[in-house]
Amino acid sequence: MRRDDYAAAAIEDLYLLHEIWHAAHMPFIPGIGFEAFHGKMERNELEASVASELLVYFKIDGLRESAFPHPIYADRFLNDPAMRLLWRENEVVATNTLLEARRNVMYSKPEGTWT
């Protein structure tokens, strides 16, 4: 699933992080019903998105500047002094806050357009 046409190496790395997250956090559950499978898939996409589109910028100084020259979704949190403080004081609560914010965006879009 390699893609070699990204504008910056950092973007390719973020794509690979997203896909690796999927693989690492997608357990096989024999006999799972459709509703449980659907929920598992939604959670996996949410967590992979937050890891590769938000958390990584908080964890790696300078990555945001080397990835995209234009504004991105993460900027609203990265540029928020209260969120930066929350991240420094309590990463767990900050992560849960980011998960909730991203989840709300995912579920506000028509089905099948979550990227």
Rank of each mutant, 00 (worst) to 15 (best):
M106K: 11
M106S: 07
T97F: 04
L63R: 13
F37P: 00
V92Y: 00
L55K: 03
I32W: 02
V56Q: 05
I60K: 10
N44Y: 04
E89R: 03
A7W: 09
I32T: 04
R88K: 14
E89M: 01
G112S: 02
S49P: 01
Y57C: 03
I72M: 13
A67P: 08
E91K: 13
I20D: 06
L46H: 02
K40T: 09
E89H: 00
R43N: 10
R103D: 08
F58L: 02
L98H: 03
F34D: 10
T97M: 01
P27N: 09
H25R: 06
G33F: 00
T95E: 14
T97D: 00
E91F: 01
V92I: 15
P27Q: 09
N44K: 05
W87M: 00
A24I: 04
W21F: 12
F34A: 08
I11L: 14
D5Y: 11
E12Y: 02
S66E: 09
M83S: 02
L98A: 05
H22G: 11
W87V: 04
F68N: 10
I72R: 13
E35S: 12
S52L: 02
W114S: 08
A24D: 15
V50P: 09
R102E: 13
A51W: 04
E35T: 11
L46C: 03
N79P: 05
A9C: 05
P110L: 13
L54M: 13
F77H: 15
L86E: 00
R3G: 11
T115R: 11
P110V: 08
E35K: 13
R88H: 07
M41S: 15
A51Y: 10
T113G: 01
E89P: 00
A82V: 10
A9K: 14
R43W: 01
F34M: 06
L86Y: 01
M83I: 12
E12C: 05
S49A: 10
R43P: 02
E45H: 04
R3E: 06
A101R: 06
P30A: 14
N90R: 04
E100Y: 05
P71E: 11
D80T: 04
G62A: 08
E111W: 12
P30I: 08
A8E: 11
G112V: 12
F58Y: 08
L17W: 01
F28V: 15
T115C: 07
N96H: 13
A82T: 12
A51L: 05
F77I: 02
D75P: 07
D80V: 05
K40A: 15
G33V: 02
A23W: 12
E89L: 03
F68S: 11
V92C: 00
I72V: 14
F68W: 11
H70W: 15
N104Y: 01
W114K: 10
F28Q: 09
A10R: 06
E19G: 05
M26D: 15
A23M: 13
V93I: 13
T95G: 00
A67N: 06
E91S: 01
W21T: 09
I11W: 01
R84H: 03
E100A: 14
E42W: 07
R103C: 03
N90D: 15
E19H: 09
F58K: 00
L16M: 07
D5A: 14
L14A: 03
E89T: 02
D61F: 03
A51F: 07
F37T: 08
Y73F: 10
H25T: 08
L86I: 02
A10M: 01
A9L: 12
F77D: 03
W114A: 09
A67S: 15
G39S: 13
G112H: 07
Y107Q: 14
